[in-house]
Write a protein that binds this DNA or RNA. Structure first.
Length: 274
DNA sequence: TGTCAGGTTTCGG
DNA sequence: CCGAAACCTGAC
């Protein structure tokens, strides 16, 4: 395996927490079923040991995916403003935000209005099994996350067999947007333009749009206000429960001064495990 | 057996 | 504009 010095990364919380649904951990290695590739990871003594398949040694991918260029110390300093976030930072040290592929993120988060993380992951793993590419690795079978192209001729009926239910037609609508060139248009847009573009997709509302903005497009000041995000804003930070999504979003992005996405990730893990 | 969460759309007011 | 129902599935 390749070795990369990568201090201050909590790989467990980063890969297995709420931001990606495509990793599994066998107690020693992490296996990521990402777009048309499998990534194998081990983290030990501040070093990331890694390999990519089928194209080996794809260091450019690893450096980008693990978001290695950010100034982590600075982010922590900016967001560490009160007792809640301080506790979260202490409980989940070295949690990071990944930089995931745009299309992979959009497709994955269409599944996310499922009951819980377990249900979401089960459905996505079926999607990989149906449409991804099979890999044999370490005596186990993996299916990569399918490229959007491989999903273009997917039928609603087959997608429903993943257990995604009524969201199947949402996925088809998102795939139509991708087929019409969404990705090249949206990459490079500013945050608001990108959000408006995403919300135009049938089945994508404010919450999924915000997931895509932070995890798939790298907008560090965006955090999804799902039921947990709302609890953070209302229960921890005492904002008015009656306010709409937009008002809560404005509050948290102002409060965390450019890094609401990072703060939200810590607080999400924190409040879910209170 | 029933009820309910999860996010978005759609409908009724 | 806002609230509530509908959509599906799995969990309890």
């Amino acid at each position: 395996m390749n070795k990369l010095f990568l201090p201050n990364y909590n790989i467990y919380w980063t890969l297995i927490g709420g931001q990606s649904h495509n990793w599994q951990f066998d107690g020693e290695f992490y296996y990521g079923s990402l777009t048309e590739k499998i990534v194998k990871i081990k983290y030990k003594d501040n070093n990331l040991f890694w390999q990519t398949y089928p194209n080996n040694d794809d260091e450019e991918f690893i450096l980008n995916y693990f978001n290695t260029k950010v100034d982590y110390e600075k982010i922590l300093t900016v967001i560490n403003k009160d007792e809640h976030i301080k506790s979260a930072l202490e409980k989940y040290p070295n949690l990071r935000i990944l930089r995931q592929d745009f299309e992979e993120t959009l497709i994955s988060y269409i599944f996310a209005s499922n009951k819980n993380l377990g249900g979401i992951r089960k459905s996505i793993s079926k999607l990989r099994e149906f449409y991804g590419t099979e890999f044999q690795l370490d005596g186990k079978t993996f299916y990569s996350f399918p490229s959007a192209e491989k999903l273009f001729d997917a039928k609603e009926e087959k997608l429903r067999e993943t257990g995604m239910g009524f969201r199947a037609k949402y996925l088809i609508s998102a795939l139509e947007s991708i087929q019409n060139g969404l990705s090249t248009k949206i990459i490079g847009m500013n945050e608001n333009d990108a959000r408006n573009k995403l919300i135009k997709i049938f089945g994508v509302g404010e919450k999924i749009a915000d997931c895509v903005l932070i995890y798939g497009l790298g907008f560090d000041n965006v955090t999804p206000l799902d039921v947990w995000g709302k609890r953070i804003v209302v229960d921890l930070y005492k904002q008015n429960e009656k306010e709409k999504y937009e008002a809560h979003r404005r509050w948290i992005s102002n409060y965390f001064e450019g890094y609401a996405g990072w703060a939200g990730q810590f607080l999400f893990e924190y409040i879910r495990n209170l």
